[in-house]
């Protein structure tokens, strides 16, 4: 039985093609600094329509090694802050993957060839399954490790630490 609402996510796919580096997500030309987080715009150069698109399409769908080339949290944080509910990709750069869960952004490994831009999706995290309502397909998700699952459910690492401290 599903107990946590965070395990069920409905949304529309926003598909981005090709290899996506951390710098494609948040341009390094401007800043890597946390001080300017409010000024960062995801995919400012790669997908200038992102800010408008993400209002209606909030499940980002990508290809291989998503978010490579940076261990900083800014790319994941910027996506999360601008309303991305989850990222589905064939694979993730480990730094991006860990930072995403650290801030409470869900990342799922799945074959994204079966998802096109604008497809209507339902993610069932508990069952490890994505329903593509547009294509009438079920897509298997690589099981999320318990460590990362807990981070996501708790709302990220800082919330987890605060809960642990409060429980002591």
């Amino acid at each position: 039985m599903i107990e946590n609402k965070k395990e069920l996510i409905d949304g529309i796919a926003l598909k981005i093609e090709g290899l996506i580096s951390a710098k494609d997500i948040v341009s390094n030309d401007f800043t890597e600094s946390y001080h300017n987080i409010s000024k960062t715009i995801p995919f400012e150069k790669k997908m200038p329509t992102f800010i408008d698109d993400v209002f209606s399409k909030n499940i980002l769908v990508a290809d291989e090694n998503f978010g490579f080339a940076s261990s900083k949290e800014l790319p994941a944080f910027s996506l999360y802050r601008h309303g991305v509910k989850a990222v589905i990709a064939k694979s993730f750069f480990s730094g991006f993957y860990k930072n995403a869960f650290n801030i409470g952004l869900l990342c799922l490994y799945a074959n994204t060839d079966y998802i096109d831009d604008g497809d209507e999706l339902s993610i069932n995290l508990r069952l490890g399954f994505i329903q593509n309502h547009t294509k009438l397909l079920g897509i298997k998700v690589k099981p999320t490790k318990k460590y990362f699952y807990n981070l996501y459910i708790n709302g990220g690492l800082i919330n987890t630490i605060i809960k642990e401290v409060q429980n002591v």
């Binding site: 946390y34 261990s71 730094g95 993957y97 930072n99 650290n102 690492l157």
Partner: peptide, 21 residues
């Protein structure tokens, strides 16, 4: 190399949850 959240954890606990490469 890690993000801010991991650093905060290490500062306040002395430990880091390391994703083994």
């Amino acid at each position: 190399s890690s993000g801010i959240q991991d650093l905060f954890k290490s500062i306040t606990t002395g430990y880091h949850d390391y994703l083994i490469p």
